[in-house]
Computed example of a mutant assay.
Amino acid sequence: MAVMTLRIPDDLDPSIRAAAAAVGMSLNAYIVRAARRQSVLDAAQQLSALGLGDDLAGEGDLL
Rank of each mutant, 00 (worst) to 15 (best):
T5P: 09
S39R: 15
D42F: 02
M25P: 00
L12V: 14
L41E: 13
G51L: 03
R36A: 15
R37L: 06
A20W: 01
G24R: 08
D61M: 12
A57N: 11
M4H: 05
A57D: 08
R7C: 02
R17W: 02
A20Q: 03
R36C: 13
G53P: 05
G51R: 00
P14L: 06
P14C: 08
I8A: 09
R17T: 05
Q45L: 10
S26I: 02
A44N: 13
V3E: 14
L6K: 03
L27E: 07
G24D: 07
A18M: 04
V23Q: 05
A57P: 06
L41R: 14
A29V: 03
L63H: 15
D10W: 01
V3M: 12
L63Q: 15
A49M: 06
S15E: 14
A2L: 13
A57G: 06
S48A: 11
R36M: 14
G51D: 04
L56H: 02
I8S: 12
L6A: 11
S48T: 01
G24I: 01
G24N: 07
P9H: 05
D10I: 04
R33S: 08
L62K: 15
D61G: 12
S15V: 14
L63W: 14
M1N: 15
R7M: 07
L12I: 13
R17V: 05
L41Q: 12
A19V: 01
D61H: 09
D54L: 07
A44G: 11
V23Y: 00
D11H: 09
G58S: 08
D54Q: 11
D54V: 02
G60K: 06
E59L: 15
Y30K: 03
P14M: 07
S39G: 12
D54F: 02
M1K: 14
M4A: 02
D11R: 08
L12N: 06
R7G: 06
T5W: 11
L62Y: 13
A19K: 00
Y30C: 04
L56R: 01
R7S: 13
A43S: 12
G53R: 01
M1F: 14
S39E: 14
M25A: 06
D11I: 01
M25Q: 06
L12C: 13
V3W: 09
A43F: 07
S15P: 10
G53E: 00
S39Q: 14
P14G: 09
M4V: 09
Q38C: 07
A34G: 14
V3R: 12
I31Q: 12
L12A: 15
D42P: 08
A57R: 12
R37P: 04
G24A: 07
G58V: 00
V40D: 09
L47Q: 08
A34Y: 03
N28R: 00
R7A: 09
L47T: 05
N28Q: 08
A49F: 01
G53D: 01
A20D: 00
P9R: 11
A19I: 00
D13V: 01
L62C: 12
V40M: 11
S48K: 05
A49V: 01
L63K: 14
A34V: 14
